[in-house]
Simulated scan of single mutants.
Amino acid sequence: MKLVLVRHGETASNVRMVLDSLPPGPPLTDLGHEQANVLADALADEPVVAVCASTAVRAQQTAAPVAARHGMAVRVVEGVQEIFCGDLEGRSDREAYGVFVKTASEWADGRLDLTLPGGENGRQVVDRCLAAIERITEGVTGGTVVLVSHGGAIRLAGQALAPNVTASLAAGGLLPNTGRVVLERDGAGWRCTAWSGVDIVVD
Score class of each variant (00 low, 15 high):
I136H: 02
R111G: 04
E82I: 12
L130C: 07
V48A: 09
V125I: 04
N121Q: 08
A108L: 04
E34C: 09
T137V: 07
A96W: 04
G118R: 03
V101E: 14
D113R: 02
V76Y: 11
E120G: 06
E106S: 15
E82N: 11
R123S: 12
A56R: 06
V38E: 15
T62F: 04
A64M: 14
G98V: 07
G79T: 07
C85P: 04
L19R: 01
G98C: 13
Y97P: 05
L19V: 09
L114F: 15
L112N: 02
C85W: 01
G90K: 12
F84A: 15
A96M: 12
D30F: 08
D45Q: 13
E120I: 03
V57W: 02
D87S: 12
G119E: 01
A40S: 13
A50Q: 14
R75K: 12
V99S: 00
A64L: 14
V57H: 08
Q60G: 07
N121K: 10
S105W: 02
R94K: 15
V57Y: 07
A132H: 02
N121F: 08
V49S: 08
Q61G: 05
A42C: 13
C52D: 14
I136D: 01
C52W: 05
V51K: 13
G122E: 07
C85A: 14
R91A: 10
V140E: 00
L28F: 06
G71K: 06
P47H: 11
